[in-house]
């Protein structure tokens, strides 16, 4: 209910602003909606959203898997940490644009280049978060696992992984928002489809209703995924904490 109210407030503000500023710079909601419907009818909306989502999914999975593994290793093994730390600092502070442009130059305007570039942008934050998680592992529970001679796999699943879970969730949360932002830049610069590409086209043609239609449908998809996928997942992970309270 409160969410609906907040949404209505957003539409109202938009409408009033468009009346004040004028249609050419900020088209009113119905104008954008009609473009949105036209794009949906032609199927272009779904093709572009689908392409973007596929890139997000691939880059996100790649960065999370690799970042978690590297972060865990760096948190557990001090040699790995000393070897990896300078690279980590470099990657953390490297602008997304540099990575994307270089990837396109070296690997061509390809899907592989786009996804790699997005993943590289997200990777260091996952590494940093998981490294903290691995450092915070409770040595008392490690000892328990050793004393009871738990096999590695079982110890990892029941002792280590639940302790890392909040860190994985945090990395996923911040990583996903980062990927949402960067994927459009990568598409804008070098892909022939996707929301970023369409926004680029709209920018060049100064087609503001088209620009807003894609931006808003993209924001809608993000919201749906956050509420239906990310938040329930987080709740499930911390189930035991809630009951303990």
């Amino acid at each position: 209910m409160l969410r609906l109210l907040s949404f209505a407030l957003f539409i109202a503000t938009w409408w009033i602003a468009s009346l004040l500023i004028g249609d050419t710079k900020l088209p009113a909601p119905p104008a954008v909606l009609s473009v949105l419907i036209a794009e949906a009818r032609s199927g272009a909306l779904f093709v572009n959203l689908g392409a973007t989502l596929a890139r997000v999914a691939l880059a996100f999975t790649l960065a999370m898997a690799l970042g978690s593994a590297i972060g865990y290793l760096m948190g557990r093994v001090s040699l790995a940490n000393r070897l990896g730390d300078p690279w980590l600092i470099l990657l953390l502070n490297l602008p997304a644009l540099v990575v994307i442009v270089l990837a396109y130059i070296w690997a061509g305007l390809t899907e592989v280049a786009a996804i790699t570039a997005i993943a590289i942008n997200k990777l260091p934050t996952a590494v940093v978060t998981l490294r903290e998680g691995a450092r915070a592992l409770d040595p008392a529970l490690d000892e328990m696992a050793t004393a009871f001679a738990l096999p590695r796999g079982r110890a990892f699943r029941h002792v280590v992984l639940p302790q890392l879970a909040p860190y994985i969730a945090a990395a996923a949360r911040s990583g996903l928002s980062l990927v949402w932002k960067i994927v459009l830049v990568a598409e804008y610069l070098g892909r022939p489809n996707g929301v970023g590409f369409e926004i680029g086209v709209a920018f060049q043609l100064f087609d503001i209703p088209l620009l807003l239609a894609y931006s808003l449908s993209f924001a809608g998809v993000v919201l749906v995924i956050e509420t239906l996928l990310v938040q329930p997942f987080e709740t499930r992970l911390t189930r035991w904490r809630l009951r303990a309270a």
Binding site: A140, E143, A147, F148, P162
Partner: peptide, 13 residues
Amino acid sequence: LGMVFQEPRLLPW
């Protein structure tokens, strides 16, 4: 080996 530590050291999750 079975061990009971001073603190119970159970898995809270």
